[in-house]
């Protein structure tokens, strides 16, 4: 599925109204440069980041790169003690996760909690980066693809950017 130009346009309009920054990138590899630019634009942010494992980017390569650039990294996995994870997350400046869908007409992110930590990482750090593929952008909540997997098996999180 490829999102139409109208959908993308609508997303940009809504994002502008809400003061959300959207960066279009050509490949997943560019995510790391976007992160570096973010910290350059906001020099008051400590160089700490929580990266949640995702199919939308190569977590290993991204975290290696950020580590080399002097970032403090928080990389949660399912074995981590939850309380300890939250303690650490409190002090992190930026959280990054992928999302499952993005709704153009409302600039809304949809996260299915197939894995833990997505919701926490989108809530606690002051800056949140969501990585969404272009084909995951739909025009409205009416799109049936958004909720097809939900029926108690996964929780769903909708966050208007």
């Amino acid at each position: 599925m490829k999102s139409s130009n109208d959908t993308i346009k609508r997303l940009f309009e809504e994002a502008e109204e809400l003061g959300v920054k959207i960066h279009m990138i050509e490949s997943y590899d560019q995510i790391k440069y976007e992160i570096i630019n973010l910290f350059l634009d906001h020099p008051n942010l400590d160089k700490s980041i929580c990266v949640v494992d995702s199919e939308n980017y190569d977590t290993q390569s991204l975290s290696n790169y950020l580590y080399e650039k002097g970032f403090d990294l928080l990389l949660p996995n399912e074995q981590v003690d939850y309380g300890e994870f939250i303690e650490n997350l409190k002090n992190v400046q930026v959280g990054i996760t992928s999302v499952d869908a993005c709704v153009g007409e409302t600039c809304t992110l949809i996260i299915r909690n197939r894995r833990p930590f997505f919701r926490e990482v989108s809530l606690l750090p002051p800056v949140y980066i969501a990585v969404v593929r272009q084909d995951q952008i739909v025009i409205s909540l009416d799109d049936p693809s958004i909720f097809k997997e939900l029926k108690g098996e996964s929780q769903i999180t909708i966050k208007r950017a």
Binding site: E14, T106, L150, G152, Q155, I156, T157, I158, K159, R160
Partner: peptide, 10 residues
Amino acid sequence: RLATYVSIVG
């Protein structure tokens, strides 16, 4: 158009 946070939890 849509509320900021919507969670469906169980």
